[in-house]
Nucleic acid binder design. Structure first.
Lengths: 231, 231
DNA sequence: CGGGTTCTTGACTATCTTCAACGAAAGTGG
DNA sequence: CCACTTTCGTTGAAGATAGTCAAGAACCCG
């Protein structure tokens, strides 16, 4: 999952559910905290998340970390480059995964439909990552955090009374490393959104979206919304 | 082209030259300043850059811009998502391009080898973009600019006496929008590198790399290098 | 319950941006 | 070809945003 602003051109083709799966392999299960693969590992399988949440990370020698993506249900993780994984992948919660052979992606073979679908998933991945560039390069802390919550609301928000509830299985540090911020800034931004009644925190890992419209405005850098909120 | 730190795992498979091309279509030529496609256009062809430099951009409603990538010789641009382009693409210089049919990427058809190569290019694109995330999210201005120059030196640097020369066909604003900075910061960082004799500017669009080792150290956030340079 | 981790908050600082001015370069039209 | 205009790049000063360092609170887990 990347933080993408659904563009006008995608409205048609939103993959709301999980397609794929004329399955050749049986489901993989992973416990929260377990690693699915490490950077440098030879790629044997790709996986589509069926339930649970994964976290893909890369490290710099000096310890700086970037969370590349979170893997939510429907997402496909493990695309190879030169046959290898280029991130670490950890399960943040218990997770169920549908594996696909790397050869199905790369050669197709006996599964032309699946081959095609995996390729399309890779292409959508490229486009989604481009959106994420915009976020990392050009958005403020408030915009980043608000965008993040908006995307999660749309993808995995659950109705909770008249509001939407979003569970955050990842730590503040994970969110920070995903958005290019520090944990302190993420924490402060949550506080700020909470104080301005845009969200509420049911507990540390559960957010209630009180004013989705305001959150969206903040996500898109609406300056009026920023000022109203500061007051 | 993204700013990627060539990882230890890629050393094997560096595609130094341009492979591909068991060509089905004839070369396209583009004048500097001309657009190859716009965001939202239906994708008909992908293109491999044979000469010249392209610039891929996305815009936000409020005018903020992100340069997604520069297309240098060997790079492939125009990967579709849901059949459409998700960036604008402009030629920064006159350019020659090898077109490939979108159907060759998506269906293969009569060109299985080409189909495979295009797919591999898409997968390498994903990995390179992941590197670039790290840059946008976690690097300082000096690290970003130094990394950028290092990558260009390795990809398109020309020997100039005992030094390497790098041409920058793009504007400072393009570099800034690529690295997530402002033009002022890019300009100041160039000045800083110039004053510390790591680089020299032959003219505004031509950089001489005087101390590649120092540049690399700065690119990787070597703090000793930073301090030495500040002094 | 206790110890360790994670989250929040505060005070301070650094980095980068913003705003503004100026000079250099490049494009335009007589 | 030269003057004029416009764009682009550089520099300075001031300000804002996010980062750092540090401490305390909340949470988690055995």
């Amino acid at each position: 999952m990347y933080v993408t602003i659904p563009s006008e051109f995608d409205v048609e083709a939103r993959d709301s559910a999980l397609p794929l799966c004329p399955c050749n392999l049986t489901e993989t299960r992973l416990r929260g905290g377990a690693y699915l693969y490490y950077e440098g590992d030879e790629v044997d399988r790709l996986y589509q998340v069926k339930s649970g949440v994964l976290r893909l990370t890369r490290l710099l020698e000096d310890g700086r970390r970037q969370v590349i993506a979170f893997g939510y249900p429907g997402d496909i993780v493990g695309f190879p480059s030169n046959g290898r994984h280029h991130t670490d992948c950890e399960a943040l919660t218990n997770a169920r995964l549908q594996p696909y052979r790397r050869t199905t992606l790369e050669n197709g073979g006996s599964h032309p439909q699946l081959h095609h679908d995996l390729l399309q998933a890779a292409l959508r991945e490229i486009s989604a990552m481009q959106d994420h560039f915009m976020m990392l390069g050009r958005k403020s802390a408030v915009e980043k955090v608000s965008s993040f919550l908006c995307v999660l609301k749309d993808r995995v928000g659950k109705p909770q009374g008249q509001y939407a509830q979003v569970k955050l299985p990842m730590s503040r540090a994970d969110i920070a490393d995903f958005l290019g911020l520090t944990t302190e800034t993420v924490s402060r931004t949550f506080t700020q959104l909470r104080k301005s009644k845009v969200i509420a925190l049911e507990n540390i890992h559960t957010v209630i979206i009180l004013r989705p419209d305001a959150l969206l405005a903040l996500a898109q850098g609406d300056n009026a919304a920023q000022r109203a909120q500061a007051a």
